[in-house]
Design a binder for these strands. Structure first.
Length: 839
DNA sequence: GAGTTTGAAACT
DNA sequence: CAGTTTCAAACTC
């Protein structure tokens, strides 16, 4: 690992290098082309995604695409009712440039259709109402109801054109076949530029243009269509399409700012910035341009659904919550909402740090292992959303990814078009500016904003050899300073580790290094996906939780709020493993807890802790029975005493902006009744998918809405979770180890992972108190407090909400049996608790 | 910008 | 498991 040799570079990477720069993501594209039914078109755009991931997209995309696209097309044709916009969309689809269409529509179309059918079936299976809901969905689009969600997926259904999914599917298939025939023989053009041109050519075909332009992935296309539709509702169909197409153009033209329906465009930008870096998005990135469009559209749709919501993350969360709460079942709407994390919605404030950044990688890896990202997404769906939601969830996930990729691609486009790095960075900054906290994951992503694909290009162009990477580009030079950019994006400055060790923030966060990074000999790049994945796996083999979110938030306990209403991050979130500070007194960024804007906890072995966000002592006291109020008061005092970082000044939703922070909804009625549920991480609950504001939490039945308020990051985190968790290697490894790690780290955190019986056992079993002095164990051994909780106050402690849950828990069971695992997990958890209480 | 400090990560 | 080394970020000058 020390230094991945060029030899190690995956064939794909090599091929990419050798390939003409024009083929931006040769490895990925080639991989995709081989694997994905969707062919070339996607490939080109897909650049970022890991090849491994690429394959999955089929499954992954198909549902979405099928549902959206197919339904949309046939429906469109069939249903004149559908607004002219729809018709135009169809036309566009039909007209779509050979490239985009050929790939997406033709080849993919059939598959999509099939997928779509499956999706429908699933939907029906999961929730018969879903279909019905879809019909009704048109009425309530995004109203927040399940139905609305459904509608989002089944746009056609909205129109009411299709009463019978099968019929629709058939129609789509027919149309697809026709399209294929038409398309056949047409050269594929991966390059977005062509697409843009095409789009430009067809003003009327704005939506189609988008799709075509999107080449990207089927899923994206469908999403785009759907999104556009959804947006249309929000804004106007045409308007939405237009906006998207425009957006594409603009993005291509390197226009950073998008204006269109509501603030969706803004969101769009943000997304772009956000997604670039994350490995997670590899897939998404793959969808690049199209994804961007789709994303923008999607966002727009979602936005349109909740115009008011866009204004604030809370709103976004609220929407999600509303949807979740409203729907007895977690319907697509939520996933969608989830998929459209607040951060995506434009406001920077909404952006959540990708707490689960690391997860992204994991997810990717998992996906790879799984063979397909799509699969992973599905699993996630199942796991989180529950069976009913599965399909929808996947769709939402794709949307998210797409969005990300879109953002990334747009960014790239912007860059390329701008041709001026500075401008590019400025654009980034603008995008990133929105990010609430510099550290937020989102922010990080922004840093990398250059889409992987673009990065690849740059890399390829810049360096035929690895050494070129070593030499920091001007961009890198700019941001030589390690840490986070002004944008909040992370960047590294690794010199010896090649960005393949946890020393590298980027790698640790599960994101590829980007231009801003000043790293030397960097292998944490899309070109070296294989290397990155291998390295990650190795690291995870040693420490399954290595890439798990470092910050966990108490589940049961709502984030303490100051009198002014601001939340007290410190009390609610803690560093999973804790710190080991001896000289910095936890008052400097050397301290991971402090850096994460969270208080120290039992898991910390710090000496002379003076963490302004929460002293270790205080935390311990709380653990031993100090009331939340007391804690909050203390925290408040601290806050008042210490000027927190801007990040601390989080709004009600603001939580420690940590990339790694994962929050659970502390509250849900169910939680009270069913502790296990409380502990369950987001993945477990279907609701988890949906982002929920603290407000929402209270409302709903939905067990846990995970999205943390601020979590903007949350959103990101939430999205990440979804993606990651299922896929996460950790999960794969099985919860046990990972849990151990968590346990050791968090001590008091309840890690409810489905797959972690052993961990649970460990918890139940008396755990040795961690030696404060032993750094090694810190990570492994459970916190003192934790033991106490388990033992003495087990029930009480748990109830009190002391426990922290990895909201996004990357490694969640989803990996394996999602839903079942969930249930199992819950059971296990409850059992564990019982055991503890018995003790 | 260079050098120092710090603590996490990695290694033995 | 404990101790040491390595590493890169954070910090200071």
């Amino acid at each position: 690992m020390d230094s991945p040799n060029p030899d190690k570079i995956t064939p794909s990477a090599i091929s990419s290098l050798s390939d003409s720069p024009s083929v931006q993501e040769s490895p990925f594209s080639s991989f995709v082309s081989n694997l994905s039914p969707i062919k070339s078109v996607k490939v080109a755009h897909v650049a970022q995604g890991f090849p491994e991931l690429a394959s999955p997209p089929l499954v992954f995309t198909s549902p979405r695409i099928n549902a959206q696209r197919e339904t949309s097309l046939p429906k469109r044709s069939q249903n004149p009712q559908f607004s002219s916009a729809h018709d135009t969309n169809k036309d566009c689809d039909a007209k779509n440039s050979p490239q985009s269409e050929s790939c997406s529509s033709s080849g993919c179309g059939v598959e999509f259709l099939t997928d779509f059918k499956e999706v429908d079936c699933l939907n029906t299976d999961s929730d018969n109402t879903s279909l019905k809901g879809t019909n009704n969905a048109s009425k309530s689009l995004f109203s927040g109801s399940k139905e609305s969600k459904i509608t989002a997926f089944k746009f056609d259904d909205k129109s009411g054109l299709f009463t019978d999914a099968a019929t629709v599917v058939e129609a789509h298939l027919d149309s697809l076949e026709k399209a294929k025939k038409d398309i056949q023989g047409k050269p594929k053009s991966d390059e977005p530029i062509n697409v843009e041109e095409e789009q430009k050519d067809d003003a009327s075909n704005k939506c189609p243009n988008i799709e075509s332009g999107l080449h990207v992935s089927h899923a994206f296309k469908e999403h785009d269509c759907q999104n556009s539709h959804s947006q249309d509702r929000g804004c106007s169909h045409q308007g939405a399409c237009t906006s998207t197409s425009q957006l594409l153009h603009e993005s291509l033209q390197s226009v950073l700012t998008f204006e269109g329906c509501g603030g969706s465009e803004k969101v769009f930008h943000n997304q772009h910035g956000v997604h670039r870096r994350c490995l997670q998005f590899g897939e998404a990135s793959m969808y690049s341009n199209s994804s961007l469009n789709a994303t923008s559209e999607t966002n727009g749709s979602s936005l349109a659904a909740t115009n008011a919501e866009f204004e604030s993350l809370e709103q976004c969360h609220t929407d999600l919550e509303a949807t979740s709460s409203k729907g007895t079942m977690v319907n697509l709407p939520q996933p969608i909402a989830t998929s459209l994390p607040p951060r995506y919605f434009g406001n920077s404030s909404t952006f959540c740090k990708p707490s689960g950044i690391g997860l992204h990688l994991n997810s990717i890896v998992n996906a790879a292992s799984m063979g397909q990202s799509a699969t992973a997404s599905i699993k996630l769906e199942d796991h989180y959303m529950g069976v009913k939601v599965k399909q929808y969830t996947s769709v939402s996930i794709h949307l998210i990814e797409n969005t990300k990729s879109c953002s990334a691609s747009s960014n790239e486009v912007d860059k390329s078009s701008a041709g001026d790095e500075e401008r590019w960075y400025e654009a980034k900054a603008l995008i990133a500016a929105n990010s609430a906290s510099a550290e937020s994951p989102n922010t990080v992503e922004f840093e990398n904003q250059v889409a992987p694909y673009e990065k690849r290009k740059l890399n390829l162009q810049k360096t035929d050899s690895l050494e070129e990477y070593d030499q920091p580009s001007p961009r890198k030079k700019r941001k030589k300073t390690a840490g986070t950019d002004s944008d909040g994006c992370k960047r590294c400055n690794c010199k010896k580790t090649k960005c393949l060790k946890l020393y590298c923030d980027c790698f640790a966060a599960g994101i590829y290094c980007a231009e801003p990074c000043a790293c030397q000999g960097c292998f944490n790049r899309p070109e070296y996906e294989d290397t990155v994945i291998e390295t990650r796996q190795q690291i995870e083999s040693r420490n399954p939780l290595a890439f798990a979110p470092k910050i966990v938030q108490r589940v049961t306990e709502l984030p303490p709020k100051n009198e002014d209403g601001s939340q007290m991050t410190p009390s609610s979130a803690r560093h999973k493993r804790g710190c080991n500070c001896k000289k910095s007194m936890c008052l400097k960024k050397y301290c991971e807890c402090y850096q994460a804007n969270v208080g120290c906890s039992n898991g910390c072995r710090c000496e002379g802790c003076k963490n302004v966000y929460g002293k270790k002592e205080e935390f311990v006291a709380v653990e031993h029975g100090v009331t939340k109020e007391m804690l909050s008061n203390r925290a408040d005092e601290k806050r008042s005493e210490n000027a927190f970082d801007g990040s601390l000044d989080l709004d009600a939703y603001d939580w420690p902006a940590n990339n790694n922070i994962r929050t659970m909804d502390p509250i849900s009625p169910s939680c009270d009744t069913d502790p296990s549920l409380c502990h369950l991480t987001a993945p477990s609950d279907t609701s988890s998918m949906a982002l929920t504001s603290s407000r929402a939490r209270n409302r709903t039945n939905v067990p846990q809405v995970q999205l943390c308020p601020r979590s903007d990051s949350l959103s990101s985190g939430g999205t990440l979770r979804l993606r990651n968790s299922p896929v996460t290697p950790i999960t794969r490894l099985s919860g046990t180890k990972s849990l151990q790690g968590l346990d050791s780290g968090s001590g008091f955190y309840d890690i409810l992972q489905d797959d972690t019986p052993e961990i649970l056992k460990d918890d139940s079993t008396p755990i040795k108190s961690v030696k404060v002095s032993s750094p090694n164990k810190k990570r492994i051994s459970p916190p003192h407090g934790y033991i106490h909780e388990l033992g003495s106050s087990s029930s009480g402690g748990l109830r009190s909400g002391r426990k922290f849950i990895l909201k996004a828990v990357p490694s969640f069971p989803p990996l394996t049996p999602c839903i079942d695992s969930k249930d199992n997990t819950i059971k296990k958890t409850s059992n564990l608790r019982d055991n503890n209480s018995n003790k």
